[in-house]
Design a protein around this nucleic acid. Structure first.
Lengths: 144, 144
DNA sequence: TCAACTGTAACTATACTTGTTACAGTTATG
DNA sequence: CATAACTGTAACAAGTATAGTTACAGTTGA
């Protein structure tokens, strides 16, 4: 496994939580649906908690639940919460300052990166968690 | 170094080539501006060549030059040429098929991924290499 | 013929992500 | 109030992608 699949996992987790409503869902149960280890789930859950999307309760009969309604959770919020880097990476080594292109390419690329990120954020802003739930149900109905 | 910075490198390279016009530029000279190894440059150049953006000439006084004019090279073309993965990764392990969410999340995420990718491609389609050249020159003028 | 290039394979170093185990801290429940 | 059931998090192993580097075969102009 290489690329960051935390956004995908976060959406999966939030969808499960949305179905549980106000009830707590245990990381173990989530891990079963996602098919991974509960610790991996709790790591993502931690980020979603920091972002104010979910709340967890420790101790017996603990677990996690949504803080907002699915209608009020946007996929941009999820994307920002798990911070899956940028669409493309800026150069790690500084370019040659002797060259006009080298001197200025970084700031140009940086502005471009920001423009792309805004575009992605805008598109992700069009989808709510409620919408994802709908799509899941539609898929399931079609498959049946 | 972690994330894929090939897109950034490709834009840098193409900008240098655009400045050279019809003249061949050697991978060694490009490497100097980008501040990396000539082989790394030739690797990216190979991808740009396959995409039909540049043409290389082997042998003495060889090198690489643009095939199209900077006005006719779009940053989407560059992005596709170096194929910098997707904005977010789909799950690597299949989810539990016992769960309605697990059963259908993948196709929903896949559709979402396609929508995001289209959005990124659209935004990158707004920029030509000629435009990047302009921006570089403007930056340089401001700095002076 | 030779020097100067490109193309590409192979290897190393680095770094990131995931999966896993382990354990401290918290809390409902009998 | 003791215990079992959770979460939160640290620590480590394994797998994998990228960048950098060396080496060398193939091509070509002088």
């Amino acid at each position: 496994m290489a690329a960051n699949s935390q956004f995908a996992m976060a959406v999966h987790i939030l969808t499960l939580l949305a179905r549980k409503g106000d009830q707590n869902l245990k990381s173990d149960a989530i891990a079963h649906s996602v098919n991974t280890n509960p610790v991996v789930i709790r790591r993502v859950l931690g980020q979603l908690g920091h972002a104010g999307l979910v709340a967890s309760q420790t101790g017996a009969s603990g677990g996690t639940r949504l803080v907002r309604t699915p209608e009020n959770i946007c996929l941009v919020d999820v994307y920002k919460a798990v911070s899956c880097g940028e669409v493309f990476a800026l150069p790690t080594r500084p370019a040659s300052q002797d060259c006009p292109v080298g001197r200025n390419i970084e700031s140009v690329l940086c502005n471009l990166q920001k423009a792309i990120d805004r575009s992605v954020a805008e598109k992700l802003g069009e989808f709510t968690l409620a919408r994802v739930l709908e799509m899941i149900d539609t898929e399931d109905a079609v498959a049946a």
